[in-house]
Design a protein around this nucleic acid. Structure first.
Length: 610
DNA sequence: TTAGGGTTAG
């Protein structure tokens, strides 16, 4: 029925066809061959092919006795044999094929044909071409609706957002039903491409066009805003939508909690938890994992353990993410015993450790210097059928580097390459730092320059390592150049970068420059830490300004910074060199009382580069 | 159809 209508509409817009009987005959013959023998037999009928034009193609496709399956094979034949057939199916032919597939409910095939159209700029230069066709021959609303919906998804899948929007607007203006699931596809595509404002604008459009908004689409927009750091705006959107009846769920809340945790905004985290309670949204394992991260990042492992117990009491199901997080924090704090207890416990609970879990544990044993244990764990994970991935290789390389075992580190790196992993930025930075530790500064530089030659952009860690190397070599000009260079390349110097350069200035007696840098850093919102003060104190001590060093030391105390053995050594040796041994001894006792072990190597390294 | 876990620098 619908086909007949199409045929008539088509004929009406192409009056020449009425007189062109031979075209119809050719079309009929092609159809006959397609039905009886399949498209490959068309090759045995060259006159048919050489006479083929868009009218004939369209007539073939519209032939009601030709099943949609045959239309598709005919089409594929034309696409495949462009050397044999001079004629290429045009946009109209594609849409006719789509309509035939629609009648046969072959939706996946329809989508494929739409993708061909979208990917071929010669076929469809703008959506207006499609509108023209729809207005001139394809009036059946259900078909137009389905095709537009699919086209909208295809545009989204191929990141053609402007075109997608045109389809959306067309559907809205023509009162075609817009499927909210298609809008989710579009939102997810925008999310993938980091198009934050477009995402928000589109969501507003969805609301305006009365598309069925769900918690899923809202949460996608909340997530996109959060990932761009616009957390308060995300929260406002959630509250606004909640007022319109779209209630946030645990995923929405977790998204916001995650972002507030990353910003260390405890107050807002609490606010979200309160809102959840009011909304009767129950926390899940993901919420608890986030809270454990929050406590872990503040070093409050006891509080992390408390919430871990609390969730057990509340009967909330645990999962491997949660255990991996707990294990990771214990490893970071050196509590390897507890980490292994948790590792055993998860197995008892029927959970399976994955590469992330092993990764955390391997890093823990590496950091405690137990490389043999690390190797055992690597074997164990392989026995469990888990592949050693690049992160684990890098972790092992770092473990050996930290112990000064550079040959073993390079051995692991070799195995990694043989397994098909190329060195990544972590590998390069880690090995460069391993070499620095052994004072092989030239080799370290060579690794980093090789990395750059291979087209990997240096990140803040790479720049900082190089700055530190040049400072150690006394080449402040180059260190400064790199420091400015990293800013220009959009790599923001962090506290380690600033401290490295300040240390370089201090050792050269350029205290004025060092203090200037400290001011600059603090103006950027970075708070001076014990390394900052130690570098400055060291600089002052070297050049006999012990009073200034003591002022800095008092500042450290006032700020409540934890004083480490290096900081103590700097000030103690400064005092003794200034002949103030009483004060030096007093601080020496204080250091021991604080449980710190005096370290000859620290002292040696302090005077080594002077 | 939306959220949470492992690696690098002083």
């Amino acid at each position: 029925m619908a086909n007949q209508k199409l045929l008539q509409a088509f004929k009406a817009s192409n009056p020449t066809i009425l007189t062109s009987i031979s075209s119809q005959e050719i079309a009929a013959r092609i159809a006959k061959i397609l039905i009886k023998s399949g498209p490959e037999h068309l090759e045995t009928a060259p006159p048919l092919l050489s006479n083929l034009d868009s009218h004939i193609t369209n007539l073939v496709l519209l032939n009601p006795s030709l099943p949609p399956r045959c239309c598709l094979t005919f089409f594929n034949f034309l696409k495949r044999n462009q050397s044999l057939v001079c004629h290429k199916p045009d946009l109209r032919a594609h849409v006719i094929l789509i309509s035939r597939l629609f009648q046969a409910k072959k939706f996946a095939a329809m989508k494929n044909v739409l993708t061909w159209i979208v990917m071929d700029n010669n076929l469809l230069s703008s959506f207006a071409d499609m509108v023209y066709l729809i207005d001139n021959g394809f009036h059946e609303p259900k078909f137009v609706e389905t095709m537009c919906d699919m086209l909208f998804r295809v545009y989204a899948d191929n990141n053609k957002f402007e075109e997608g929007l045109q389809v959306f607007d067309y559907m809205g203006n023509n009162e075609l039903m817009i499927d909210h699931r298609s809008c989710i596809v579009y939102l997810l595509a925008l999310q993938r491409c980091n198009k934050v404002l477009m995402c928000l604008d589109f969501f507003r459009k969805m609301v305006k066009n009365k598309v069925d908004i769900t918690v899923y689409s809202m949460t996608i927009v909340v997530n996109v805003l959060c990932k761009k750091g616009m957390v308060d705006r995300a929260k406002d959107l959630m509250i606004e939508m909640s007022g319109k009846g779209i209630k946030p769920n645990v995923v929405t809340y977790n998204t916001l909690i995650n972002s507030y945790i990353k910003k260390m905004d405890v107050e807002r985290v609490d606010e979200m938890l309160r809102l959840m309670e009011m909304d009767k949204v129950v926390c899940n394992a993901a919420t608890y994992t986030l809270l454990i991260d929050l406590y872990g990042s503040f070093g409050k492992i006891d509080d992390a353990e408390k919430v871990f117990v609390e969730m057990h009491e509340k009967g909330i199901g645990v999962d491997i993410h949660l255990y991996t997080s707990m294990i990771s924090w214990h490893c970071k704090l050196g509590n390897m015993k507890r980490a292994f207890v948790l590792f055993d416990e998860l197995t008892e609970k029927g959970l399976h450790a994955n590469a992330h879990t092993y990764g955390a544990l391997i890093d823990g044993v590496c950091k405690s210097g137990k490389m043999d244990a690390a190797e055992i764990l690597v074997n164990e994970m392989q026995c469990q059928g888990l592949d050693v991935n690049q992160v684990i290789f890098n972790t092992l390389i770092n473990g050996y580097c930290k112990k000064g075992m550079i040959d073993e580190a390079l051995g692991v790196q070799d195995v990694m390459e043989k397994k098909g992993f190329e060195n990544d930025i972590f590998t390069y930075n880690t090995i460069a730092n391993g070499l620095c530790k052994l004072d092989r500064l030239e080799d370290a530089k060579r690794w980093l320059f090789t990395m750059i030659d291979k087209g990997i952009n240096p990140n803040a860690v790479s720049f900082t390592t190089l700055i530190d190397i040049y400072c150690k070599e006394g080449n402040l000009v180059e260190a400064e150049r790199l420091f400015q260079g990293m800013k220009k390349k959009g790599e923001k110097p962090n506290i380690v970068s600033y401290n490295a350069l300040m240390d370089g200035y201090g050792k050269k007696g350029k205290l004025k420059e060092a203090y200037q840098l400290k001011d600059e850093m603090e103006a950027m919102g970075i708070i001076s830490d014990i390394y900052t003060y130690t570098s400055l104190m060291h600089g002052e001590c070297i050049f006999g300004k012990i009073e200034k060093a003591l002022n800095l030391f008092n500042e450290v105390r006032q700020k409540g910074l934890v004083i480490n053995v290096v900081a103590y050594t700097v000030i103690i040796s400064g005092l003794s060199r200034a002949g103030r041994s009483d004060e030096a001894f007093r601080l020496y006792d204080e250091m021991k009382e604080a449980g710190l072990v005096p370290d000859d190597r620290v002292y040696t390294s302090l005077v080594a580069n002077l």
